[in-house]
Computed example of a mutant assay.
Amino acid sequence: MINGAHVIIYSQDAEADRVFLRDVLGYTHVDAGRGWLTFKLPPAEVAVHPTDGRESHELFLMCDDITQTVADLTARGVEFPDPPQEQGWGILTTIRLPGGGNLGLYQPHHETAYNL
């Protein structure tokens, strides 16, 4: 019945962030019309976390080797406002998008669900 998920990143500079996803991360895409690019993402998984505060949604990219991934992306001009930090469940850092937003990046220590 459900065959996919569509993630939206809101941005103060959508064009710059589209260029970043296309040229820096190398994500393939389709043009949905008038330059609105829709990108193919790597395999994904979803988790539900409890909150006592306002409900929100977050997007994290995942990698196998955060040290190498950060080095590769840094060489391409990507900024990381926070150094990778051990969280117990994985090693987490933040990618600064050209539009000013942030995107999480982590190397999980836990079993992943996207290959099930």
Rank of each mutant, 00 (worst) to 15 (best):
T38S: 11
G88P: 12
Q87P: 00
K40Q: 08
I9H: 02
A16N: 04
P43A: 14
G90R: 02
V19P: 06
G4H: 11
L116W: 13
L37W: 03
V19F: 06
L103D: 06
S56R: 12
M1K: 10
G53S: 15
N102S: 15
H57R: 14
E111S: 05
N115Q: 05
C63T: 15
Q107H: 13
L41C: 12
V24Q: 14
A47V: 09
Q85V: 06
I8Y: 03
V30H: 05
K40N: 10
G88V: 08
P83W: 12
P81C: 09
G26P: 13
G88R: 07
I95G: 03
L92N: 01
T94W: 02
I2F: 11
T69W: 04
G26T: 11
Q85H: 07
T51S: 15
P81W: 07
A44W: 10
H109K: 11
T94N: 04
E111K: 05
H6G: 06
A113V: 13
W89V: 01
V24I: 13
L73V: 07
D17Q: 01
F20K: 05
L41W: 10
A14L: 04
A47F: 09
V78W: 06
M62V: 14
R54A: 08
T93A: 08
G90M: 00
G104H: 13
E86G: 01
R76K: 12
P43E: 13
A71N: 09
H49P: 08
L25V: 01
A5W: 07
R18Q: 04
P50S: 12
S11V: 01
F80G: 05
I2Q: 04
I91K: 07
A16W: 04
L41T: 09
G88Y: 06
A16R: 05
I95W: 01
F20S: 07
A113N: 15
P43Q: 12
T74G: 09
E58S: 03
Q85C: 06
M62L: 14
E15G: 06
P43R: 14
P43T: 13
G100D: 14
D17A: 02
D17V: 03
F20C: 09
H29K: 10
L25N: 02
A14N: 03
H49S: 10
L73M: 12
D17I: 04
A44E: 13
G88E: 11
L61T: 03
V24C: 12
V46T: 11
Y114E: 04
Y10W: 14
W89S: 03
T38M: 15
H29Y: 13
A5L: 07
E79K: 08
H57S: 15
I2C: 08
L97P: 00
A113P: 09
D65N: 04
Q68Y: 14
R34T: 00
Y114N: 08
T51Q: 15
P50Y: 15
